[in-house]
Each structure stands twice: as structure tokens, then as C-alpha cells.
Design a protein around this nucleic acid. Structure first.
Lengths: 332, 332
DNA sequence: GTGAAAGCGCTAACAC
DNA sequence: GTGTTAGCGCTTTCAC
């Protein structure tokens, strides 16, 4: 049978209150009594029941994370980094995967906001802020991560890539490239919109021809890069930006497989989802845009706990910056 | 204030029992009454409190997954696949990351078995079965995944790679390769042991020279492949097996970066962690060993729920098979 | 410095 | 076909 706090109290010859206070250091207990309590706990092999505790206190010590694609390394690293922070603070992480499907996101939101978690990290795949907003109970602690909306109703942590993309396009133009293509993620996402906007701005400012055929959208899953790529090659592109890490790494492998020489036949600007030196050589012939994934995850962890503790603190919108690293340049 | 089941009962003019039974379809309720209940629920915006419910029933509808490295695509895909199955069955997934650290695994085991989850999926990084076993309360539903131990005390789901590795080494020997190197994961893991054993068996059976210097161990993180690789190249290897997906993909990129021509200067046998066609070209010059990652995750999900429902069903040890696919051969 | 006891919101006997 | 009510294991107020 399950050992409860009363069993411990009985064996130790004290009240349940004292046992509870001893365990939680929540009021003074004489060292004699403490001793007896710990003795009893050890003897019975008692472990406080987490679900009774969270029922009673209303705190679950658990945060939910709604992710578009766990198998994608970008989100894998994000989760790792958030989990790392949260577990250090005594919190657990519940993962829900949407596979970029809005209905799955809706289902998960309903389930997770029903008393399962203290707060929610959301990398939303919704196209419509209203739909998301309607699913979140008033006052429920939420932090939007990576993907945001125009309305600053919820705190958010995201990465801006405007600057590096703008610069990379200008550099390519400066090298004489005229037909610069871009592959973005799902068009409805804020990240995609910002990236394409940066591209358009640079194309306009550099006086390059504006051609909608040079803008392609994938879905950030592995199989979606090659078709986009082929379309851009047919358009006679002399440079291509791939604005998402997974599609970018597939692109590099694909082009190499085709015998297309990067940095010679074609210039490539590639998003990179991690900050490691292990792949240095893999990217030696391409320009990179590097997002601070780990920092994103950690900041999200900080923000959600802050939110859980003070649900009505002022809404913060944190924007981290990504860096442009032309090929050949030293990595930091 | 929070809306409770009593509020609903009061407004609907019925008892809390009826509300509960209506919600859970757990006994007959006339359609009239049902109607009134649903009306009241809608009007008040009532959502049953998950933690009260799990406290009461003892069922958390949550499974924990102890993973060595979330950011590794193998485990990312594994998690995705398990989550997919579990969420369809109404279960949530709590992730704990150990980064191949035994102490972190210990901490997580303690936390997760204390009434937080109904069952546990463990891809253990422990070297010692006893240590793991001591941390699991008697009767607690557990399924070992990917990595197993000699004692068949717990059910497990794993992948055998003996056969494909043995065959790949024999093929290489048949092509006249004499110095075949191998890079494994952490030496303490069952997966690593099996892989190295298969290699040793094949080396012996094919009459190749046995040389311990040809056996290197990494830690399955990205930065650990290149040093192993360099050591093997110094040993004059004419073929190399990389027995883990992440290290293998780093290896390929690294060798290409060095100007070493795969399939010409050096033969490579590479573990692949996913079953996708997107990377077909990436692997066109290497032989592959492909593990059924998705099936592994799904089977683990099935097994743990089975276990949660019948904690003392006979212990099953499921072994899935991986396939050897020499380069040039059609992918399935 | 410690104890008694009231619930947290729900489910499930048991009763009618 | 529905209602009454005990109690899951814990925390915490109030009392001494």
C-alpha cells in the first residue's frame, strides 16, 4: 500500500502538520522532532505524492510547451534549453507537438490549459491571433516563443532576422548577383513574414529586379526544400537564401549531390539552427545566418516562470538578434 | 473565481454526481438532464480541473520519457513518434533530458516516480542495472527503450543492429578492405556493446587483422566525431563504420570538407536516424544502416500504456530490426 | 514548538 | 434515473 503522510506522523509520534512543515521547511521544528520525522520517512520509504500536493496548492510545478515539430533540431535545441532552465528551477516540461497543424494546436491548448500546467510556452502555428487568444483562459500565464503576432497582448521572446537578411542580400548584390531567390517557411508565420520583408526591402534598395517567382515557400519539413530549389534554379537564380535551418541543410546536401558547386556556380545563404563548431566545414562554402537558439530557450524559460509568479506583470516583448556570418569569416 | 463542478450542479439543478457522470459518460443520464448540464457548463465556461481529477482517480494520464539528448534528431524523432501515439490515447508526455549524465538520470527518476506520471519510458544512460533498478519503486510501470540491460526485469523495446553491421563488414572485406575502423557511442551502453560485438565477430570471421586501435568511442554528441575520425585515419583505415546517426552525419560533412572522396578514398558505413527520402543524395556515396525510429517510438508508446493498464502482465522484450542498405541500392 | 481539523474539486460507492 | 456523501493526501489556519 501507499505510504502517506499520516503513516509517517503516526510512526514519528507527531502530527501530520509537523511532518509537512518538516519536509517543506515552512515553520520552525525542533531538531529533535525533525530527527524523528526523517527517521520515520526513511523507515517507511515515504515520498510525498506530487498530485495530492499540486491539487492542494494549485501549483503543478509544470510548464507546457507547444511546439510545431519536435524532430526538427531547431525546436529540439529550443526544448533542451528551456528544459534545462526549468528543471533547475524545479519545474517539469510537458511537450505537445503540432506538426504545424492548427487543429492540433487547438486541441493541445484546450488540454493543457485545463489545470495541467502552471504556464504555457507557445511556438504557435496559428495564422489568426483571435483563434489563439480565444483558447487561452483569462489570466493564464503564457509566453509566445519564436513566433509572434502584431497584438502585444502576450509576452514574447523572438529572434529578429531582418538585419542579417538585409545585409546578406546587399552583399550578394555587391558581388554582382542579380537574380537572388529566397526560400521561406510557412507564409502565415511571423518569422517568415519578417524574413521575406527584409529580402524585399534589400532587393528594392539595391535596385535589383523584383520578381515574385524568386520567392518560394516551404513548410520547414525536410521534403519541402528540393521542389522550391528546383523552381528557383529554373528561374536562373545566381544566389539563394534559405530561411530555415532544416531546409537549408537539405539544400546544401541536395546541391552538392547535383554537382552544383556552392560559392562558384551558386551563392548560398543558409540559416543555421545551432551554435556549434562541429559543422564548421559543412558550411565552409556558404554564408550563414545564425540564430541564438539556446538563448531563446533560456529566455523563454525565464519569462514563463516570471509570468507564473506574477501573472499581471507588464507584458514584455523580448527580441534577440541573429548574426550574419559570410563564409570565410571566423566563427565566434 | 474558479468554476467548480458544484457551480455547474447548482445552476443545472442536479447533483454533482450527475454532472460528473454526464461529463464522463460513466452511467446513464437522461437526455433532458444531459442537456441542462451541458447548458450550465457552457454558460459558466466550466472546465474540469485536471489535477483534482488525477488526484482523485490516481491516474495522471501522463507518461514520462527520460531521454539522453533531446537535441539529437534520433531522440527527437523518437519522442515525436511516442508523443504521437500517446496523445492519440489521451496521454501527455513529460520530457526529462539527461545529456548522458547518470546523476541527472537519477534525479529525474526520483522526481518522476513520485506521483507525477503513470509510467516511464527510459532510454537509460546508466552503466549499472542495479543503480537504475533501485530508483524504480516496486510495481511502477516502466519500459526500457533503445537501451537495455542483461536482466530481463523490465519490458523493453530496442533495435538490433548485429546483423546489418556484421554484413556490412563482410561486404567491405569482400571488396578487399583490410583496415576497417569503427566509431561507437558511449562504451557502457547496450547499443554500443552490441554494435562493437558485431564488428568484432565479422572481423574475426572474415580473417581480418584484429586491432584495438581501430575501435574508437565517441559520446554521440556532435563534437566527438572528428577526433575519433582523425585517429582512425592515422591508423590508415580504408573503411569506417560510424555507429550513430549524429556522429555519422558530422563525419560525412567533415570528410567532404577535407577533400576525402567517399566511396573512393575511403568507404563509409553510416547509421541513419530517420527514414526519409529527403537526404537520399546526401548518402549516395555511403552504405547505410537504418533504424526504424518511428516504429521504435510507437512500440514504446504501446508497451508503456499496456503496462500502465496491466502492471503485472508478463515482461516482453521487443527487438526491432534495422536494415543494411549498400550505396546504390534502391531505398524502400 | 506543536496539534486539530478544514477543506482543495472531483469520483464512485451506496442508497433510493 | 438521480442524489448523498466519504474521502483521495496534502497544506495551512487557528488554537494553545
Amino acid at each position: 500500500m501507499k505510504v502517506t503522510i499520516s503513516d509517517v506522523a503516526r510512526l514519528a509520534g507527531v502530527s501530520t502538520a509537523t511532518v509537512s512543515h518538516t519536509i517543506n521547511s515552512t515553520r520552525y521544528v525542533s531538531s529533535d522532532t525533525k530527527e524523528k520525522v526523517y527517521q520515520a520517512i526513511a523507515q517507511l520509504g515515504y515520498t510525498p505524492d506530487a498530485s495530492a500536493r499540486s491539487f492542494r496548492t494549485g501549483k503543478k510545478k509544470t510548464v507546457g510547451f507547444i511546439v510545431p515539430d519536435i524532430s526538427n533540431k531547431f525546436f529540439g535545441t529550443l526544448i533542451e534549453s528551456a528544459e534545462n532552465y526549468l528543471s533547475a528551477k524545479g519545474y517539469h516540461l510537458i511537450i505537445a507537438n503540432t506538426k504545424e497543424n492548427m487543429d492540433r494546436e487547438e486541441t493541445n491548448l484546450r488540454l493543457l490549459t485545463a489545470g495541467l500546467v502552471d504556464g504555457l510556452l507557445i511556438a504557435s502555428t496559428m495564422d489568426d491571433f483571435q483563434r489563439l487568444d480565444n483558447l487561452i483562459p483569462a489570466g493564464f500565464p503564457v509566453v509566445l516563443i519564436d513566433r509572434t503576432f502584431d497584438t502585444p497582448k502576450y509576452p514574447s521572446v523572438s529572434v529578429s532576422c531582418f538585419q542579417p537578411i538585409y545585409r546578406s542580400v546587399c552583399c550578394l548584390a555587391g558581388q554582382g548577383k542579380r537574380r537572388i531567390g529566397i526560400i521561406g517557411g510557412l507564409p502565415r508565420l511571423s518569422t517568415t513574414k519578417e524574413r521575406v520583408a527584409a529580402y524585399r526591402a534589400a532587393v528594392a534598395d539595391c535596385g535589383l529586379p523584383q520578381d515574385e517567382a524568386l520567392i518560394r515557400y516551404g513548410d520547414s519539413m525536410e521534403d519541402s526544400a528540393p521542389p522550391c530549389l528546383n523552381q528557383l534554379l529554373e528561374q536562373g537564380c545566381d544566389a539563394i537564401l534559405v530561411c530555415q535551418g532544416l531546409m537549408a541543410s537539405v539544400t546544401i546536401a541536395y546541391l552538392r549531390g547535383q554537382g552544383i558547386r556552392l560559392g562558384q556556380d551558386l551563392e548560398l545563404v543558409s540559416f543555421v539552427d545551432y551554435d556549434t563548431h562541429a559543422y564548421e566545414f559543412y558550411y565552409s562554402q556558404v554564408d550563414r545566418i545564425i540564430q541564438p537558439v539556446e538563448k531563446l530557450g533560456r529566455t523563454a524559460g525565464e519569462q514563463i516562470l516570471l509570468r507564473v509568479e506574477q501573472p499581471d506583470a507588464p507584458v514584455q516583448e523580448r527580441v534577440l538578434t541573429s548574426v550574419y556570418r559570410p563564409r570565410g569569416e571566423e566563427s565566434v
